[in-house]
């Protein structure tokens, strides 16, 4: 069993929601990333989404665009991410790690080489933003062979028919994009999210996790009422940006904001 499935099975048994933070690897500099990951776990992260910096992050708003730029200034590439995950695994063999990013850096080193190296480093899942299931014929089986989960997005605009296809291909968890827009855009509407999640329950047993527009304990709790997990990215990356000149303060900042969300989620009645 993959670490992601194990983690969600535990959470389900406890009636708790998953808290899934995202940070861009190498932001503000590569030497801090592993420390941030441990801090996120200490503050209650169940799964970590580690962003692969890309020069053209088309689905991301300015906050994550700038995070990519800061990381790319240090020349961060996938081989460095694998090193970071390997180092993280020396102290933490439990927390699942999902690499999130765009297809081009992966294609450049080759799908098979990527999957082998990612699995060897201790990665558990891969979310490729610009690769819908229709384009995953080749990549999906390669990931599977290495025991890596293919995680897909579902959007408010996804038709029932497409949602069924996505559910059939998806592994680990489904990432429901709460907003029409880029990352970090606006505040989500919890009622709207609930309305979209309901039909997905009929299509899949995968945990439904919601991202885009969650920025604090209150919005996390709102979404936690209807979702199996909440994903938070730009709110964390914003803190990193604000303290980019004082990186030693960042881990504490991340723990504070994530801890607030953890508390808010754990205060909800059991699922």
């Amino acid at each position: 069993m993959n670490r992601i499935d194990e983690r969600f099975a535990e959470l389900k048994a406890q009636g708790r929601r998953a808290l899934i933070p995202y940070i861009t690897a190498g932001d503000p500099a590569p030497r801090y990333t592993v420390g941030f990951m441990h801090a996120l776990v200490e503050a209650g992260a169940d799964v970590i989404e580690l962003g692969v910096p890309f020069s053209d992050p088309m689905a991301d708003g300015p906050v994550i665009q700038k995070a990519c730029e800061r990381a790319l200034k240090h020349g961060v590439r996938l081989t460095h991410l694998f090193e970071m995950v390997r180092e993280f695994r020396q102290r933490d063999d439990q927390t699942p790690i999902v690499l999130m990013g765009y297809l081009n850096p992966i294609e450049r080193i080759g799908l098979e080489a990527f999957a082998e190296q990612a699995a060897a480093a201790g990665v558990d899942g891969v979310l490729t933003v610009d690769m819908p299931p229709e384009e995953a014929d080749e990549f999906g089986p390669i990931l599977k062979q290495q025991g890596l989960a293919s995680i897909f997005l579902v959007a408010p605009t996804t038709s029932q028919e497409r949602a069924a296809t996505i559910c059939a291909h998806g592994e680990g968890y489904l990432y429901y994009v709460a907003l029409k827009g880029v990352t970090g855009a606006a505040t989500l509407n919890a009622a709207d999210v609930a309305e979209h999640l309901a039909p997905l329950r009929g299509l899949t047993d995968l945990p439904l996790c919601v991202g885009f527009g969650i920025r604090d304990g209150a919005s996390a709790a709102e979404v936690g009422k209807v979702a199996d997990g909440v994903i938070v990215g730009s709110a964390l990356v914003n803190r990193i940006a604000e303290h980019a000149e004082r990186p030693e303060a960042i881990a504490g900042e991340l723990k504070a904001i994530l801890g607030e969300m953890r508390q808010a989620l754990d205060a909800l009645p059991a699922h």
Partner: peptide, 14 residues
């Protein structure tokens, strides 16, 4: 070629 976009745009392209 193909259609390598984030999910939100899939319906508009369909």
């Amino acid at each position: 070629g193909g259609r390598f976009v984030s999910e939100t745009l899939s319906f508009a392209l369909d």
